[in-house]
Design a binder for these strands. Sequence first.
DNA 1: TCCCCTTCCGAACGATCGTTAGCCTCCGGA
DNA 2: TCCGGAGGCTAACGATCGTTCGGAAGGGGA
Lengths: 190, 190
Amino acid sequence: MSTRKSELTRAAARLFAEKGYHGTSVGDLADALGVQKGSLYSHIEAKADLLWEIAWEGAETFHAALDAVPDEGPVVERIREALRAHLRVVAEQLDIATVFVREWRYLEGERRERFVTERRRYEERFRALFKEGRELGELRTDLDDATAALLVLSAANWAYTWLWPGSNTDDLADRFTALLVDGMRGYASW
Amino acid sequence: MSTRKSELTRAAARLFAEKGYHGTSVGDLADALGVQKGSLYSHIEAKADLLWEIAWEGAETFHAALDAVPDEGPVVERIREALRAHLRVVAEQLDIATVFVREWRYLEGERRERFVTERRRYEERFRALFKEGRELGELRTDLDDATAALLVLSAANWAYTWLWPGSNTDDLADRFTALLVDGMRGYASW
DNA sequence: TCCCCTTCCGAACGATCGTTAGCCTCCGGA
DNA sequence: TCCGGAGGCTAACGATCGTTCGGAAGGGGA
């Protein structure tokens, strides 16, 4: 893939994240590259292609980050690593993450379905960790694992609104994990 | 305010939530009312007015729900009630909540600033609960209250994506609260 | 030297955008 | 009975939308 094409994709990610997909015109994209809008069609067939490429790249990036989490060892550690991995991607690829979380819904047709499937699979991978933790007894056996997973996924999916590129995401992920594991009250009060 | 005007606002909330503000045309709104698009301008001066009205109504609704939470009594109970109040609004006014959480950013100028101020104030009200809980010793004294608040606010802000109108939001809020208070590991393992 | 490939230009396309205007109809109150 | 205002219609406005097209510049490989 040529350099110019990837410049376009990067600019599109930035503008889609900033102004939304429908709020960004092909003219805006052309301006970002210092080029006439007609010229962009040497690189793409349609504006919708850009949205698809960015959203799909996001899916691949998040899945790849999760792949690096071992599938054995203490569950709490793996949850911590999974959250670290996710937040790291958000902070390092904020534009792509934003499109992945918020703008994907403007995908149409078969692409939309493919994306949704992949997104659901990603969330399932998270959920499985909590379920496993409960079943193995590493988390409390009466844990409502679906609710726990929902809480973590909410933090993960909302992160693009408050994370900024320089954040120490590992530290943040650890604090979230510690909080979820030990609770807000702690042993001191009981 | 006439009935017709409120019908328009309701339809706009639904369409903005479904297709996004920029993804919804004035023609779409007119279709929803079974009317020509020019006719809408008997009720509004501009499309942007609708976005403002809906977003602001959302702000008022969420604040009003939080107003019903007592400002004394056990902090954990008040956090629970605050979360209940929030989730209830989301489930009962899903379209408005969606605009409040996601579409507000297409507001422009002074309206945008006013909205952001009000939104920040809402989140501050949540944060204050956790801070108070820690300071009063009702939550663990070494609690990272900012992180705890962020976790709850993430769940609250993300809820519009998975809550559906018939959900038992009180029950859900209680499960979130219990999880946060007691943690995922529980006394059994320590 | 020639040729191809990438990249861009400039101009234009039809479609759709949000908004305005003038006119008409209907209905409730004076 | 008349009047006024609310609400809707039709038609059109200029602007902007995403996209197409023919041509041309430029550079690298043969």
